[in-house]
Design a protein around this nucleic acid. Structure first.
Lengths: 233, 233
DNA sequence: CGACAAGTTGATGAGCGTCAACACTCGTGG
DNA sequence: CCACGAGTGTTGACGCTCATCAACTTGTCG
């Protein structure tokens, strides 16, 4: 058992709002789980027996359409919460796309804690409201923006997540170096574009001197300012 | 004061999950408000002094981008909940797009009730989780689908809302007649398309014998089955 | 070395945005 | 009563963006 005191997401996740007392109780029910890339964490329609904070790694939330297409609905990184309290079924598939470390909480005692500590439940509620806003914003972005802007927004959001969690990247004077946790196909699915379009936009950004790609998964942001400008805001 | 017992959204809204006791308390703080088309109900960044259930009419949630464009993020109809508990600012503009009847609850006492009745707060939480799922689904739809499918999905969602609230439409043997609560521009903004594209898709649906449009705001669904098929599901 | 997955690049076409002209309704005022 | 204008919706012509199909390159693992 890893103690919360040394937890890397201690202050940004759900746990950040807890009193020492509450944290102690939560720690008492926490169990750590590890997954490797490709593992199924939760399946759509299934009743998960636990909730979880993502401690490290990247998780994709996807849905398989009737035509058998994987549509990525969201990406979760360190400090994000996984699961739907008071709902029996989970609405999406959750896959590990990198090595993933979860801090899990069994359903029954976790919901018990929520009932016992209203401020805890409220915190989770507020987090859900924020996610709702983010989801609506994202929908708006997907309808308004061109492929280039979308990709730039995506890269910036990844970078922002990494900065918030203080890992997975290196800051440079004019930008940053980071490892992309997702494949081209996953980026494409998430952004509602095709792999070819993603690839073309990447090379265009290289030509424009905004990024460089030592390897497909290694992204060097040469000019963060230009990247933000290209994201359209 | 209109009593909850006769309220048309009594059983479908938030109120549907309340005990008689809770409902009595909520009724005690409720105040009804009426708006005409075009009225501003809430403004982005503002701290609203009340929450509300939509009793009748249509409300649009929009955001004004830096370029001054109105982007419609959501539409709310009868039984939908307006406002964000435990959040000081409201994230969007809310406008009445038809005559709107709201059942409002002042902030302080409403949040007090939430604290007093955990089951009440939980109900609101669950509703928010559903909205989150819906928002993510919507984002997925906006990225995947063509203009025609999008419009059909939109029309079906309107019809579904009207059926749920039992008003604003007439059922026919093979379809329905309904009054569109929104302009072409509003449909376009919501669907991430242009008015011209909306107009063209409407005429195409007419040509295909799926709908007819006696006037721009009067929609006759001639073949509901075909409409659903055209929606891609 | 060969096989396979992942990514890149190219050619082509469809779909939708853009610009522009036109039709329809409604309210106002002579 | 008709004339006028503003607002809303429709239709047409054209170009750009991105999807599609296909070939090629690169990296990885047996």
């Amino acid at each position: 058992m890893v103690a919360c005191a040394t937890c890397s997401v201690r202050h940004r996740s759900l746990c950040g709002a807890l009193s020492p007392d509450q944290l102690f109780r939560l720690n008492g029910i926490a169990r750590h789980r590890h997954f490797v890339a490709g593992d199924v964490i939760l399946r759509e329609g299934e009743t998960p027996d636990y909730f979880a904070n993502v401690v490290s790694g990247a998780v994709k939330l996807s849905r398989t359409t009737v035509e058998g297409q994987h549509q990525i609905l969201g990406l979760q990184f360190a400090s994000d919460f996984l699961g739907r309290p008071f709902r029996s079924v989970f609405g999406y598939d959750a896959h590990a796309i990198t090595a993933v470390h979860l801090c899990t909480f069994p359903r029954q005692p976790f919901e018990g804690l929520l009932r016992e500590y209203p401020s805890f439940e409220r915190r989770l509620f507020e987090q859900t409201l924020d996610e709702l806003d983010a989801a609506r914003d994202w929908a708006a972005v997907l309808t308004r923006t061109a492929a280039r802007e979308r990709l730039c927004l995506f890269l910036l959001s990844i970078l922002q997540r990494f900065e918030a969690s203080g890992c997975g990247h290196t800051i440079t004077p004019t930008g940053a170096i980071l490892e992309l946790p997702v494949s081209r196909a996953e980026i494409a699915s998430y952004l509602g574009l095709t792999i070819e379009t993603i690839s073309r936009q990447f090379t265009q950004l290289k030509v424009d001197g905004i990024i460089s790609l030592p390897s497909p998964r290694e992204l060097v942001v040469l000019d963060l300012h230009a990247l933000k400008a290209a994201a359209g805001a």
